[in-house]
Amino acid sequence: MTKRRPEGLTATLLIGPATMVVLLSLVLPLALLARYSMNRYDRRTFMVEAFTPENYLRFVTDPFYTGVLWTTFSIAIVTTLLCLILGFPVAYKLARSQSRWKSIGVLLVILPLFIGSTVRALGWMGVLGRGGIVDAIYGALGGSGISLLNSSFAVALGILSINLPYMILTLQSVIEGIDARVEEAADSLGASPPRRFWHVVLPLALPGIGTGGILVFILAMNAYATPFLLGGARFQMMAPMLYREFAVNNNWPFAAAIAFILMLTTLTLTAASSLLVQRRYRAH
């Protein structure tokens, strides 16, 4: 024991700074936010010291706010599933590719990440908005004036385009870790391609699917610029609503409560899904 003490001390010293950084930059502000969420809002004095659950109650008892949470959740689930369905074939193809174009392919997937989500949302506005590309084509075909903006479709499309690269890159690295010979073995034992996929590739890729899914789900739940720009005033999601309460209405207590509700929902769903994936994974 006495011999090991210096080692333990070294470890503590090494972990110490990082722990302090996390404590100071994440835990403390969150604790402060939690405290704010219990305060009362007053427009003139801005925040009144209190210890009340009324901000949380206001959210959960009002169908308007729970509706916004539900919309956010639906959009996040739909885009996560679409990311998975569209991303898996691309990731698989990239992972198994022996071609010299492979790195170009990977680069093409990474490239959109260099452009911020705001810029890409503006790009979509040019495509979907009135006077945009879709409108022009529709006009040329004889239609008159169409705008696909300010709809759940536009928001889902925008978020999908932003999150897809994350999904592809995560899946690709996991699929690359699956020994190709396992698939060859399945082939040689007479499994049809769909059977091979369902019984060999998919179960082995499940942890990657879980990680990628969680990653894009969290990103979608917290999306701000995309729903704000493509959804407009008439399409409500959690992050823009939170921002409005905080920065436009200056209602910090309620904004803090919304932040916690969003965070807890995301964390709970994430934990639940990873448990589910783990259980499935163990079963195989």
């Binding site: 908005g129 009135r130 006077g131 409108d135 004036g145 705008s147 704000f228 720009l229 407009g232 005033a233």
Partner: peptide, 17 residues
């Protein structure tokens, strides 16, 4: 039509929205 940014009003008039 509701516009979230003031700047979006002018394109709205221009495009005939």
């Amino acid at each position: 039509k509701t516009y979230t940014s003031t700047e979006a009003f002018a394109p709205g008039i221009k495009s005939g929205e």
